[in-house]
Amino acid sequence: MTSEPAGDVLVDAVAVTRTYGTVQVLAPTSVRLRAGQGAAVVGPNGAGKSTLLRLVAGAEAPTSGTATVLGAPAERARRRYRDRIARLLGPVPAYPDLTVAEHLRLVQVAWAGRYPGPEVDEALAAATLDRVRDQYPAELSSGETQMFALVATLYRPASLVLLDEPEQRLDARWREVARELVLGALDQGRAVLAATHDPGLREVLAGRGPVVELAEPRR
């Protein structure tokens, strides 16, 4: 696990906006996130929650304002510090012929010497995925697929974790498990920025940092 000294600013987005043509999909929004902090991005559909995450991830550039991540412009940080930023912004790419457990072992190998734990079976048990450890991605239910994506994202070392509605397709029981996993990441000293509609996850993140409330932009 890679973490930053407490107090270090990992995300500093200042009045960022995003416009496509004449349509503004994200009104001016600011968020600052330090090591060990969580931030919940909330608002109605169409308010720009996913867009804000993509700007912080460096996947898109803001139309105005600045997004600084790990001390560099977000677009540059995306390439320079990819080993310190974990992202779940859509479906997780998976190898069809590797089992759930083998995917996590692959993460272990890829980051050998940099990630001290937990072991694969421990991580799967914490996510209540131990019973599907030997199944292939295509054999998972939609809820299992989402939990697998969250576990795989959190399993690798990272100082900053970006999550876009990690509660998608999860029932009430698994939403509680997802909250515990996110809380565990915060306890490890990671910063977590998550867009969410889940009141429980919002509460977990609000206990560790700001809530970014977005209103639907005027078209």
Rank of each mutant, 00 (worst) to 15 (best):
E213P: 01
A127T: 08
D164T: 10
P210L: 14
Y136D: 02
Q24E: 13
P73Y: 07
L70I: 08
R179I: 05
T66P: 00
A158N: 04
G65M: 13
R105G: 05
T63G: 12
L98M: 15
R84V: 11
R76P: 02
Q135M: 06
A74C: 02
A127N: 05
L26E: 11
D198V: 01
E144P: 07
A40R: 05
L33H: 09
A127L: 12
V31E: 08
T51M: 07
R76F: 10
A112V: 02
P44K: 13
A40C: 11
A206K: 11
D83S: 10
L26V: 09
L55I: 15
S30C: 01
D171R: 13
L52F: 07
L162W: 10
G71L: 07
S141Q: 01
T68P: 01
S159H: 06
T99R: 12
R105F: 00
A77S: 09
V109H: 09
R156W: 00
T66E: 14
L201Y: 10
L89F: 06
G113Y: 14
W111P: 02
R82E: 02
G189R: 11
Y20I: 13
A215Y: 01
G90Q: 03
G36A: 11
R80L: 13
G90S: 04
S159Y: 03
R114N: 13
